[in-house]
């Protein structure tokens, strides 16, 4: 058991060479690789953190935008709703007004039509009554209707009583004797004479007579002075008929 000094020196040299070798080929590259990996991982982590932060920021921004958008949308929707409501109200108002106008127009025209119908009916009725009366009178009494009308009228004049008579008389006196007799038909000479005679009898003086045709008078006769007029027409009977018909109509409406 001895120490071989050459071997010692050789081993020291060998060891130093091995140190260099391993430093060169083992420790340095391995440690470098580890460091590189650690750096890489650190960089990746940092990158991930940065990206995360960015993503968070983006997310926040997006959320903010979304909220703003939602708010805006709601506001716009509300506005649109309001506009729609007001527009609806306006249109409804317009329609209501229009309908009111239309209805009043319609009612007016209805009334007018009714009036027209009534008028026509009146006239037709008058005509019919007149026709019937004339025919009846001519058939029954062999007297023309005109004659009968004049007779009735004269009777009416004769039967004037009280206040009416005084009024009639006053009117005739004021009239300086001019009397206009209006009728639908031509009065025959005998009818004229009869009328004049009756008038004379009442007024007790000679009168100046003028005869006029008036188609508006429905089967009647009318005495006109400046301030008074006396008439007999079928109108008065027709008025009664009209009143009756209106009452009937109202009753019908009430049933509806």
């Amino acid at each position: 058991m001895e120490i071989n000094w050459f071997t010692v020196i050789a081993q020291i040299v060998n060891f130093l060479i091995l140190v260099w070798l391993l430093k060169r080929f083992l420790y340095k590259p391995v440690l470098d690789a580890i460091d590189a990996r650690e750096n890489k991982i650190a960089a990746q982590l940092e990158d991930a953190a940065t990206k995360k932060a960015e993503a968070k920021k983006d997310q926040d921004l997006f959320r903010q935008k979304n909220e703003a958008f939602d708010k805006e949308r709601v506001a716009k929707m509300n506005k649109v709703h309001e506009q729609i409501d007001s527009e609806k109200q306006r249109l409804l108002e317009e329609v209501r007004k229009e309908s009111t106008v239309l209805r009043s127009k319609f009612e007016e025209s209805l009334k007018q039509q009714e009036q027209e119908i009534v008028d026509r009916l009146k006239r037709k009725t008058k005509d019919a009554v007149f026709e019937i009366a004339r025919k009846t009178l001519s058939d029954l009494a062999d007297v023309s209707l005109e004659q009968q009308v004049v007779t009735v009228f004269i009777e009416k004049i004769r039967n004037l009583d009280g206040a009416a008579k005084t009024k009639f008389m006053d009117a005739l006196k004021d009239n300086e004797g001019s009397i206009t007799i209006k009728s639908v038909f031509y009065l025959s000479d005998s009818s004229k004479q009869e009328l004049e005679k009756a008038m004379e009898k009442i007024t007790e003086k000679q009168n100046d007579f003028r005869y006029e045709l008036e188609p508006e008078l429905v089967s009647g006769i009318k005495i006109e002075t400046a301030s008074y007029q006396l008439s007999w027409t079928i109108d008065s009977y027709l008025e009664a008929l009209k009143k009756e018909s209106i009452i009937t109509k109202e009753k019908e409406n009430a049933i509806d």
Binding site: M1, I3, N4, T7, V8, I9, A10, Q11, I12, F15
Partner: peptide, 8 residues
């Protein structure tokens, strides 16, 4: 070998 250990 003692030489090696001595060297170390």
């Amino acid at each position: 070998s003692l030489s090696t250990t001595a060297a170390l």
